[in-house]
Simulated assay, not measured.
Amino acid sequence: MEEGNSTTMMKLYSHPMSSCSRRVRLALYLKGLNYECINITSIGDPELLKVNPMGYVPALVDGTTVVSDSYAILLYLEEKYPQHALLPQDIMKKSINYQAASIVSSSIQPLQNTTLVHYIGEIVSPDEKLPWAQYHIRKGFVALEKLLANHAGKYATGDEIYLADLYLAPQLDNAINRFKLDMTEFPLLLKLYKIYCETPSFQQIFAEPPQQIDKSLFNFTKPQEA
């Protein structure tokens, strides 16, 4: 891909309730990068489809460079804008960050995605939507609690904010506030969430403008995210 034009402000196609978009917004905030946030509120938005034919958020436009999928965007930002590294230098801690990000992005988030939860309600029963989401979130949290047990400091893998935190913070927020998961068996994850809530860089993604969010948990329609 061509190098982005540094004189042009980046554009991020996002959605206020998209955990995938929140990861990227956190990275942009931490790296001190200015960008225009374009909130997508309907499936099949023509403006989004122009930059990402899949119709997923987030998508980043940086000059002539277009990157979609949150993981690809984060790696792109890390390589092009190295300020505030998203990965530690220590190879073991780096591997823990990769694993934590993978658990969230592959084993939790897709299975509690609003579109899939709606589908479960249609083919099984509306009463099964919340238990379905809680089951898959809990399964992932069991793995994360064990994975981070010997590596967490103030944050997930030490005393600096890294990639694992970017994935964990939005997922924990969803689990606790949208899916009402009982966090009793996850003291480490709950401790991390409380720290995120007290940290300015995370506060700015948790405090969304009320007018942009439909408070109904399962009647909310949003674009697919990746």
Score class of each variant (00 low, 15 high):
Tyr119Phe: 14
Gly121Lys: 05
Glu122Arg: 09
Glu122Asn: 08
Ile123Asp: 10
Val124Glu: 10
Val124Thr: 07
Ser125Gly: 12
Pro126Gly: 09
Asp127Thr: 13
Asp127Cys: 07
Asp127Tyr: 07
Glu128Ser: 06
Glu128Trp: 05
Leu130His: 02
Pro131Asp: 11
Ala133Met: 11
Ala133Asn: 09
Gln134Gly: 11
Gln134Arg: 15
Gln134Glu: 14
Tyr135Asn: 15
Tyr135Lys: 15
Ile137Phe: 03
Ile137Thr: 14
Ile137Leu: 15
Arg138Pro: 00
Arg138Thr: 15
Arg138Ser: 15
Arg138Gly: 01
Arg138Leu: 04
Lys139Trp: 07
Gly140Pro: 02
Val142Trp: 08
Val142Ala: 06
Ala143Trp: 01
Ala143Val: 09
Lys146Cys: 13
Leu148Phe: 02
Asn150Ala: 15
His151Phe: 06
Ala152His: 14
Gly153Ile: 09
Gly153Val: 08
Tyr155Ile: 09
Tyr155Thr: 05
Tyr155Ser: 07
Ala156Gly: 04
Ala156Cys: 10
Ala156Asp: 00
Thr157Asp: 03
Gly158Ala: 10
Asp159Arg: 06
Glu160Leu: 10
Glu160Val: 06
Glu160Met: 08
Ile161Lys: 00
Ile161Asn: 01
Leu163Tyr: 06
Leu166Gly: 00
Leu166Cys: 11
Tyr167Asn: 10
Leu168Ala: 02
Gln171Asn: 15
Asp173Trp: 10
Ala175Tyr: 03
Ala175Ile: 03
Ile176Pro: 04
Asn177Pro: 04
Arg178Leu: 06
Lys180Arg: 13
Lys180Val: 11
Leu181Lys: 06
Asp182Phe: 02
Asp182Val: 05
Met183Asn: 14
Thr184Trp: 06
Glu185Leu: 09
Phe186His: 11
Phe186Trp: 09
Pro187Phe: 01
Leu188Asp: 02
Leu189Pro: 00
Leu189Cys: 08
Leu189Asn: 03
Leu190Ser: 13
Leu190Pro: 01
Lys191Cys: 05
Lys191Tyr: 10
Leu192Arg: 03
Leu192Glu: 12
Lys194Trp: 00
Lys194Ser: 13
Cys197Asn: 04
Cys197Ile: 01
Thr199Val: 03
Thr199Arg: 03
Pro200Asp: 07
Pro200Glu: 08
Pro200Ala: 04
Ser201Asp: 07
Phe202Lys: 01
Phe202Trp: 04
Gln203Gly: 03
Gln203Ala: 08
Gln204Asn: 05
Ile205Leu: 12
Ile205Thr: 12
Ala207Cys: 10
Glu208Tyr: 00
Pro210Val: 07
Pro210Met: 06
Pro210Phe: 02
Gln211Ser: 11
Gln212Ser: 08
Gln212Asn: 07
Gln212Cys: 05
Ile213Ser: 00
Ile213Ala: 00
Ile213Lys: 04
Ile213Leu: 05
Lys215Leu: 13
Lys215Ser: 10
Ser216Gly: 01
Phe218Arg: 02
Phe218His: 06
Phe218Gly: 02
Asn219Arg: 05
Phe220Val: 04
Thr221Ala: 11
Pro223His: 06
Gln224Ile: 07
Glu225Pro: 00
